[in-house]
Simulated scan of single mutants.
Amino acid sequence: MAVSGAVMVTFLVLHMIGNWKIFFGAESFNHYAHWLRTMGEPVVPYRTLLTLLEVVLVLSVVLHMWSAWSLARRASAARPVKYHGKKKSHAQGYATHIMRYGGITLLLFIIWHLLDLTFFVVNPKGSAATPYERVVADFAPERFWVTAIYIVGVVMVGLHLRHGVWSAFQTLGLRSPRNDRALRLLAGGLALVLTIGFLIVPLSVTFGLVS
């Protein structure tokens, strides 16, 4: 779970940086989108490396979900009868709900995101438009409900990351009582940066800063 999560976090950071190309104008953003599909040419055919990266990402998502399901089954089998007398803390309950139900919300959000800006099924401009035109049309002021979907999805990503990154440090044996506070701050800071970094694009379009 920790390793597959690390792969996805790396993807999110790179994806966020790529999204910021939109602030340099249509030409820069469209050039970046074209470059993603032509990486490695002419050594490898068109879209080969991007497809391989997508396969790795999908496998990471599947393995992450399988790990969560497998760990939940192990925990249930190891403790078939609930503990008595000691209630779960608010922090533990929060983390459980965020990671469990937040994961389901994230899966639905990923599906919507793919249908929107990868397969163009729900995008108002469709496949004939440029990447820049699709983003601008998608988050136009009159389509604020789409921006709202992304706000909810990205916030859930941030909450999931906040707990998940810290848990990964612990799983990989990097946490100690001495650095626990620093690692928590690092996890929270990364989650905050990614949340703001992803939301700034749709919000900038919705409020007319990018058009």
Rank of each mutant, 00 (worst) to 15 (best):
V81M: 10
N123F: 06
G153Y: 01
R143W: 11
T171E: 04
R175L: 09
G158A: 07
L115N: 00
D138Q: 11
V135W: 07
L108N: 03
G126N: 08
F139N: 01
G158P: 01
A168Y: 08
F139C: 05
N123M: 06
L114D: 06
H90W: 14
L107G: 15
P131D: 00
H160W: 09
L114G: 06
V121C: 10
V165Q: 07
L172H: 06
T171D: 01
T105W: 09
A148W: 08
Y94H: 06
L161S: 11
V136M: 04
W112G: 00
P124L: 04
S176G: 09
T118P: 01
T105D: 07
S167M: 13
F109L: 00
S176Y: 14
G93R: 11
F119I: 03
H163T: 15
S167H: 12
M156R: 03
L115Y: 00
P131Q: 03
I98L: 08
A129D: 09
F120I: 06
G173V: 11
M99K: 09
V155N: 02
Y94R: 07
V81K: 12
P131N: 05
A137T: 13
K88N: 14
T118E: 00
T171W: 02
V146E: 14
H113L: 07
Y101C: 03
A128K: 10
N123P: 01
D116M: 01
Q92R: 15
R100A: 11
L172P: 00
H163V: 14
G126H: 01
F119P: 02
V157C: 08
S89I: 05
L114K: 03
F109I: 05
V152F: 13
V81S: 08
L114C: 04
V155I: 04
G85L: 00
T171S: 02
F109N: 02
L161G: 10
V146I: 15
